[in-house]
Design a protein around this nucleic acid. Structure first.
Lengths: 258, 258
DNA sequence: CAGTGGTCTAGACCACACC
DNA sequence: GTGTGGTCTAGACCACTGA
């Protein structure tokens, strides 16, 4: 079986595109090879030193091309092992109009979801938590932070803050925060979400097992009880390569032609 | 007036943090200086060569630290000019439940919005357009691509495709596609949006005047008439540092406890 | 013009994976 | 071990900005 180097540098190999900086020429060349299917997801690329010798560039320049492709999600690098074409990610969709529990939502699609606890306990509230959760200064706040995974693939980081009066014992949560809240009659019926894009910092990238700087969705959610009281304030970080959010829009009623 | 170099390297300067790679030490150090307010938005940093000499690192290492900060939106670099602390972006909010026109939406907030046409005309449809817009093979497709700006700041790139029967003359659109459609009785009343995060490629980054690789929101929108017919299919790219999308969620009705 | 960021090189050593 | 990616250096030249 021919290895990848033969495929890329064999007799019918395609020459590097011309024009612009060398690292961009090499980047385009590798990107095209992946999109053509000349090298497939999971395939290993030649080592950086090997590539550098073959295309007659310095290793620094090769690394620059490769790291751009890593940032774009085309390649992945594993320290001590090699550089590989990134696997096709299975994108997951989530509704932006129905307030659903992560666990219940995924179960409905037959996906196996796990959580790893990053933190849970009772704390003195920050000023921000005091305001958004409507706490008095003597109240405690319950913080629960989880890493969400589907199989072995991390999907999201979720950091929630709730009033201790709603969640007096954070340790008692099973897999689903919402079903735990439901038992005590505190399941939210309404929420406001604020969504933005941001590059992952080093710490969160490590947790999600992607490269720092990769695009991610940051979602802030404030959930309310039927009474109007705030139940939870959650900041979540979703991997950009595995998540789609879907929203249905209807004609606005605040138009000038009322 | 003391310049930035004096502020950073003066008598009461703060030493570089220890531990880990040099470029990350330098990155943390600059990041802290910005967050402390020791250097403010708009201020120029010392040149890369200057910085390298002062912290006793090679220029390559300094560049690595700086480019990480550029990617994170902390700094901006201008070729031939210098490196500056990034200005505080004014974030813009957009609703994810009301189907509003960009132009009308911004006007309601008193913001001055301009559009620059990137492309508009009639074309033979792509297979994807044929399917999503429900065209027959003889139909043409109208494509309109715009760069949206608030003042001189680019906000978003919008590429829309509509059936030529709905928009026979793309050149006739004024500033608002939706008000143009309204005149011909084709204003959509409902839309499905799909939102994801992605790193900007070089071309789109140039249009939006940010660095390649910066996080952005990619939105695909399919809009429908009251009759159920598809009016437009639009792909938009919003700058991650200037846009928040807001959605209101309600308790889902597809729960197991129906 | 001088000064800035942008690209590129050859060579070195370290940290980790895999055998 | 050997081979991989990760970091770091000193020095060079190019392309752009701005006085």
């Amino acid at each position: 079986m021919a290895d990848v180097a033969d495929t890329l540098f064999g007799a019918d190999s395609i020459p590097l595109p011309q024009g612009g900086p060398l690292y961009l020429q090499l980047k385009r060349w590798i990107e095209d090879a992946v999109h053509r299917g000349a090298i497939k997801p999971g395939d290993a690329l030649p080592s950086e030193r090997d590539l550098a010798a073959r295309v007659e560039m310095s290793r620094v320049t090769v690394r620059k091309a490769v790291q751009h492709l890593v940032r774009d999600g085309i390649l992945v690098q594993r320290h001590g092992s090699g550089t590989y074409v990134a696997p096709q990610p299975n994108r997951v969709e989530q509704s932006l109009s129905q307030l659903t529990s992560f666990t219940e939502d995924m179960a409905r699609r037959g996906m196996v979801v796990r959580s790893v606890w990053l933190d849970r306990g009772l704390y003195a509230p920050s000023p921000e938590e005091t305001v958004t959760l409507g706490l008095s200064s003597s109240d405690n706040v319950a913080r629960v932070a989880r890493l969400r995974l589907s199989g072995d693939t991390p999907l999201a980081i979720e950091r929630a803050a709730l009033s201790a009066s709603v969640l007096p014992d954070p340790e008692a949560i099973g897999t689903s925060l919402y079903s735990h809240l439901e038992k005590s009659g505190h399941r939210p019926v309404r929420a406001i979400q604020r969504i933005r894009a941001a590059n992952l910092d080093d710490a969160d990238a490590k947790l999600l097992e992607v490269s720092p700087g990769v695009a991610s969705l940051h979602i802030e959610r404030t959930s309310y009880l039927a009474s109007g009281r705030v139940v939870e304030f959650t900041r979540s970080i979703y991997r950009g390569d595995t998540y789609d959010f879907v929203a249905e829009l209807r004609l606005g009623d605040s138009r000038s032609t009322r």
